[in-house]
Each structure stands twice: as C-alpha cells, then as structure tokens.
Amino acid sequence: MAATPEIPNSDKNGERRAREPDEAQVVVETRALSKVYRDFWGRQKVRALKSLDLEIHKGEIFGLLGPNGSGKTTTIKLLLGLLFPSEGEAIVLGQNATEVSKNERIGYLPEESYLYRFLNAEETLDFYGRLFNIPADVRRERIDRLIKLVKLDAARRRQLREYSKGMTRRIGLAQALINEPDLILLDEPTSGLDPIGTREMKDWILELRDQGKTIVMCSHLLADVQDVCDRIAILHQGELKELGRVDELLKVEDVTQVKARGLSADCQDEIRQVIERHQGELVSMENPTTTLEELFLSIVRDSEARPGRRIVKQEPTKQGKS
C-alpha cells in the first residue's frame, strides 16, 4: 500500500477549478425541513429533524456533525429523496429533492455500502454506470479508472461477498463517482476504515473538492470532520446547534500559540518574563506531541521503507507536522 495516497486527477479536462467555494451558487438548500417518523397507524414516533435551514454552496465540503440519532442521516436521506419531508422542503441542484432527474448529477455513498453482493467490482460499476446516460466506451474507460483509483485492481473480478469492509467502502465510493457528479453525499465515509483507509478517503474527498465538486458528508468522528470540512453544522436531537466555517469555529480568539525549535532553558525563561511584563497569562509551554494518527502513519511509512525492522520507539518530535 502506498504511504502517501496520491490520486490521479479523475477530471478528464484535468483543470483545477477555484478552490474557494462559490458563495453565490447554492447547491443544496433546505427550508424548515422537518421529519417526523410515524408508525403504521400514523402516530408520531420520533421527531428526527426539526425545521432545518441550510445553504450549501458550490465547491465546499460541508459536514453534518452530531452524536448518534441526531438527524444527520435523516437529513442526507431527505436530500436524496429516499425519505419524504413531513414539513418544509429541500432543494437540491435547483430541483425538489423528491425529483428523480436531479440524481443525474448526484453521487451517494451510503452509511454501509449497500451493494449487490453477487456482483464483482466491474459488474457493480457497470450496472450503476448503465443507469446513467453514458456512452459505452466512456463507461468502460471510467470503470477502469475508478477501479484503479480506489485500488481494487487486484480484486476487480471477485464477488463483493468476499470483500473486506474497507474494500466495500472503496467500491462504494467508486460507485458514487461513476457519473462524475457535481454533488456528492457521503454518509459516514470513514466508518469501518483503518487509519490508512481513513487518510486515503479524506485525501480523495479533498481532491474531489479541488475539482470543484460540492461534498456533503456526515460523521460523528470529529477528527475526520475537522480535517476536511470547510463548513459544518452541528445537529443534536434533530435541531441545528451550530453552523459556520470550521477554522472560525475552532479558533480560540484570546489564545496565542508560539512554536519554536532549539530554545534553551534561559531563552524560555526570558519568554516567560516577556509575557509577564505584558500582563499576559502563560497557559502552557511544553514540547508538543503529534496526533496518534500521525504517529501510526509514520510508523507504517517507515516500516514500508525499511521492511523487517521492528520499531521500538519513535521520536515523537521527528515527524511533527503543525
């Protein structure tokens, strides 16, 4: 497995579009979107979503965040038209979410890859490809490229029933990209993936955003959301609690962080005195640790470079990335 996941540019014209989201172009809009689950007799069971108002712009990665049962998946299903709203409406790509024709430009990776287990990877992509108006030669070429992209080249003729969880996720992603969609909805994209798979998935998501596609993902894995999302909405018990840009939401306005290398103890003392002189409060001064994810990845990278050697201890500061 390659240590640094690098995906071939899947856009045929190869041109990288503007990285900044286009504020003017609204791709997804919900107005007072609500969902009440009812039982057979029409009695109310759960209010899964309460009057959600959202606007998602072209070219951004939008994260729906929240604990289990907070209405993330319900929102995604409403956007796809798999559920019908009890109140309000969802407009996706300029059409009502219950319209079928909007699906031409949508890609969807469900929570677990719900695919036909009796098909192999090629047949799966072929089947989903045939549901779109794609010429046969383009379809074949695209299937080949996607299989290579998600690194299932070796397993392309194995039935999906033999696939591991990670492989199923990959073929699920490939299936969602078969029509080169403008809007991609990902339900827990990293669930069930190992750290390498998670990193690859996140890189693919960023790559897709760089191609100008809009991505809506939902997750309860905070790290994932933090790493890739431009904007997030935090849901709890069906209600919108927070909405905004990730960097702004996470920015701690009254704390300044200084990072330096090679400071002596005297120098550190001096800095403390400077802070004191300016009536500041020193919160902490220590050697930083890397994240576990970084550590694990660096170990794997290292062991692939020098196979056979058992790594006892890794210098924590060596590979540190801000």
């Binding site: 796809l80 038209g81 798999l82 079928v100 699906n103 719900y114 695919l115 287990r117 549901l131 779109f132």
Partner: peptide
Amino acid sequence: KSKTIYTVLTKPVR
C-alpha cells in the same frame, strides 16, 4: 432489506 435499493434509487432510476 439489504438496503441496496438506496444505491439504485439515488441514481436517475424511475
């Protein structure tokens, strides 16, 4: 039951 219908009906299938 296996929810494969999700991936089918989210394609432009009538």
